[in-house]
Design a binder for these strands. Structure first.
Lengths: 347, 347
DNA sequence: CCGTTTTATGCAAACGTTTGCCCAAATAAA
DNA sequence: TTTATTTGGGCAAACGTTTGCATAAAACGG
């Protein structure tokens, strides 16, 4: 590509000034007279001068560019988060480089390496479901690269993070299922070591406990790949349904798991909710259009992205290292629909 | 962020060589002895040398970075396209900067300006529905920035593009509606000046013509913002239903329009397909789960993204300017489901 | 043994900024 | 008038590469 932009040198030549004077005039102040500043600024404006970002970056080490690592873009939750990220980035004049790790630890590591190599100003990360070892990330933090985690965050590490109220969302959904009469509520979730899985599992447990219902291991199914492999959901569901006392309701812990479960139940002609009710975390845009309309726990995905990005930019632009770590928790919204219509209503 | 990477200078110092020798050794050949090359390469590998991309870019003007301009990421079609783009970019060791224009011409222009300012190697563009004036893009092409358009492409301009067989997809869907007995088939589409709208409209017309059915203006509704404003779809649909002879089937031209129409029909309690059938372009992941299951014309979104990116990288990496322009057309897939169950079957 | 070619390497400029330091002129203080 | 201070601006190095040109050493031909 032919570069067609004018440079500081061009301005200096045209105005009979030195490079340094022009540079300083453009940034305002620093002992350059008002008159000269105006001359320079006017000339720059007239000729559409735009500083060469590459050169600036080489000098200054800042690129106004934010890297993002997430699972996969077509996931409706992440797509909405990306929307939030991009929107704030645009507003603040940053750009966004996006990478997908497809829930693979190896790919996550590679992506993050690539991103930092490209000297971005900060990193927005949602961990892969395989990730247990965080050394690649702590290394980056030690290099003082600002990192903000969202959704799937490290649990035992001081860091900035934006999360969903996983406990609360799960508690509310499970309580809802209990209150309308379901007795044997199963839970399909992802890797047990993930922050979101843990929070949701605990919310589920607490709801059972608060309503004097037993916690039964047989009703908990883990999908280690978070539903990236269709058969893991299939197996989980199959095992649940084959139990001597199969569940009368299922609470699913993530977007992908919810949709997979829903699809399988439909495919296997298992009536929802009469044979088994379904409620789950999901950010699918129109759950009310499904058959039956799906009861969902909805996360504030856009807000998660935008908050994370605002915090990120704050971190980048603050001169002094920010003291302490921020952790924001976003509320969920339970939307009750037909897929969890009460037993009472049905009988 | 503290840069912790070693530089060519470090290698040169450690090995007692000059910068130029190290640089050339790393790139292989250019009259550097095998022995030295190995020494340098080994040292570089041991110390995890990675060339500073910023510096390289300043010298060479290539960044291994591709800019993308599209409507909005949460749109399931674009999300899947992005997946294709990112996947190929990863494979070829490029990174992707993504911007959303939200179907606004102004924002498209700004985004593209920002992208080029950041000296990317190439641009993947899907035009906004407002875009008529292409001068901002032709200017970039003249600067020899490689551009590949996808989905919404300039119609009257020599350029590289990947499109869907809009004509064919629309023809097939309309023919399907005709063949199972619908008589008054309406068409809801976006801006009439867009390439995709035109192709789909023509496919629709041709299908009518080939089956000796009249083309009636009253059955064509344009949504200038492609459904970004909910009320434009609402108005369009309302007008259609209020006609003395309302349509008995609707063919919608895009993802957003299809979902909006579907939602409204459900909301207004208009039975699908008995009162009005629905078939439309959509890349929603599970249309079979809707109530009723939705007949869709599905585009190869992932493939569109991956093909566009492969072509892009080819353009970037070819030494000689590529002669001629490529235009690839991807087939659509019609999936017939309940929302267009035949009239015959219903009666 | 000398001149020429080949081979392997180094020097320095360049990419477009930023910035520490220096300096001339103007002004103020003595 | 001399000295000190302020004001406005320039020089040059630096960021980490790449690359045209120069050059020293080795190999070769005569």
């Amino acid at each position: 590509m032919k570069s067609v932009n004018i440079t500081i040198k061009d301005i200096a030549k045209a105005l009979g000034l030195s490079l340094s004077t022009v540079s300083r005039a453009l940034k305002g102040s620093y002992k350059i007279s008002e008159a000269t500043q105006q001359r320079v600024k006017n000339y720059a404006a007239e000729h559409h001068y735009r500083p060469n970002l590459i050169a600036q970056r080489l000098k200054n080490k800042n690129s106004r560019c934010i890297g993002v690592a997430l699972g996969t873009i077509p996931n409706s939750f992440y797509a909405e988060v990306m929307n939030g990220i991009e929107s704030v980035a645009y507003e603040k004049d940053y750009m966004v480089i996006v990478t997908q790790h497809f829930e693979s630890y190896e790919r996550e590591v590679k992506n993050l390496e690539n991103l930092t190599w490209r000297s971005i100003d900060g990193l927005l990360v949602s961990l892969s479901s395989e990730t247990k070892d965080l050394s690649h990330l702590t290394k980056m933090q030690q290099q003082e690269l600002p990192i903000v985690y969202f959704d799937r965050v490290p649990e035992h590490q001081a860091c900035h993070k934006i999360t969903t109220d996983n406990f609360g969302g799960a508690y509310e959904a499970t309580t809802h299922l209990i209150q309308i009469g379901y007795q044997r509520i199963a839970h399909i979730t992802s890797s047990p070591h993930m922050s979101i899985s843990r929070g949701r599992l605990e919310g589920y447990y607490q709801a059972l406990a608060d309503h004097d219902m037993p916690q039964q291991e047989q009703y908990i199914k883990y999908c280690r790949h978070g539903g990236m492999l269709p058969e893991e959901v299939e197996n989980a569901l199959d095992e649940l349904l084959k139990l001597p006392e199969p569940p009368d309701a299922i609470f699913t812990a993530s977007d992908r798991l919810t949709m997979h479960t829903f699809t399988l139940l439909r495919k296997w002609n298992i009536a929802i909710p009469s044979r088994v009710a379904l409620a789950g975390f999901s950010n699918f845009a129109s759950p009310e259009l499904l058959d039956p309309a799906l009861t969902t726990v909805k996360q504030s995905a856009f807000e998660m992205g935008s908050l994370a990005t605002r915090l990120m930019i704050e971190l980048i632009e603050s001169k002094r290292p920010v003291e302490g770590f921020q952790h924001k928790v976003l509320a969920t919204e339970l939307c009750v629909r037909e897929s969890s219509a009460g037993i009472i209503a049905v009988h």
